[in-house]
């Protein structure tokens, strides 16, 4: 069919867009991971002052404001503050910080479900705070975090399509270009894009599942947390 031929010809563009999508996702998740971990440690072990004035407002803001608004804030904010960053960078900052706010919840939950006995035992043999976190708390917390993190991965990957809005040439935008260039069947092309996203999510999930199996702590289970308020959950 003529239309399918169009898709076939558009494949290189779609693949380059897919690559950008993957890179964006990696950057978002990496920034979210590093900052999220720090925030979580701050929430569990940090001073009240730090928590109330820095961490909680940060989380509140980045979880209540929609991703699209955040993208625009960073994109237009850069020229407002006369800082020269690319659209790509703006997207990474916006979505990375946003992911950090969500990942910090994941890690915080994991750390708190480990139980304070572990920290006490570590300190009782003379380890300082940093050593205890590094050798005892984090190894366990990271393992426990994998299931909810798998969800975060899927969310970030799908939301990467929003980078479209600030002009980043990721998968969806490539799709748009193809439609515009060739007056092609938009339905078909966007459906193909959707399927590519689907495969990316699927493959990623499988990979994370394998990771989870490999690092499972023999005999250990995470406890569920029932008493969160709505704002804490979103």
């Amino acid at each position: 069919m003529d239309q399918l031929n169009l898709v076939w010809q558009g494949l290189p563009s779609l693949l380059s867009g897919t690559l950008v999508t993957i890179i964006l996702t990696i950057y978002f998740l990496a920034l979210g991971f590093l900052l999220g971990l720090l925030l979580a440690l701050g929430r569990v072990y940090g001073s009240r002052f730090l928590q109330l004035l820095v961490i909680r407002p940060f989380e509140r803001f980045f979880r209540a404001v929609p991703a699209l608004v955040l993208l625009f804030l960073f994109y237009f904010g850069s020229s407002f503050f006369r800082v020269d960053i690319s659209a790509f960078m703006a997207a990474v900052l916006a979505m990375g910080l946003r992911s950090a706010a969500y990942q910090s919840e994941i890690f915080r939950g994991a750390i708190q479900s480990i139980g304070e006995g572990q920290m006490r035992a570590a300190r009782s043999i003379g380890m300082n705070m940093l050593q205890s976190i590094r050798y005892v708390i984090l190894p366990q917390a990271l393992r426990l975090s994998i299931p909810p993190w798998t969800n975060e991965y899927a969310v970030v990957l799908k939301d990467s399509s929003l980078a479209y809005a600030v002009g980043v040439t990721e998968l969806l935008r490539q799709g748009r270009y193809i439609v515009a260039r060739t007056f092609g069947n938009a339905l078909l092309i966007y459906t193909v894009c959707a399927l590519i996203y689907f495969m990316l999510v699927f493959v990623g999930n499988q990979f994370l599942r394998i990771l989870e199996e490999k690092y499972k702590i023999p005999g250990y289970e995470i406890k569920t947390r029932k008493d969160q308020t709505v704002l804490e959950r979103i």
Binding site: G117, I125, G126
Partner: peptide, 18 residues
């Protein structure tokens, strides 16, 4: 340093599970 010279055994063991 003091803690490394004092051992503690807990009621709930607190072994490092990982």
């Amino acid at each position: 340093i003091i803690r490394s010279s004092i051992g503690m055994v807990f009621q709930h063991f607190n072994l490092f599970t990982h």
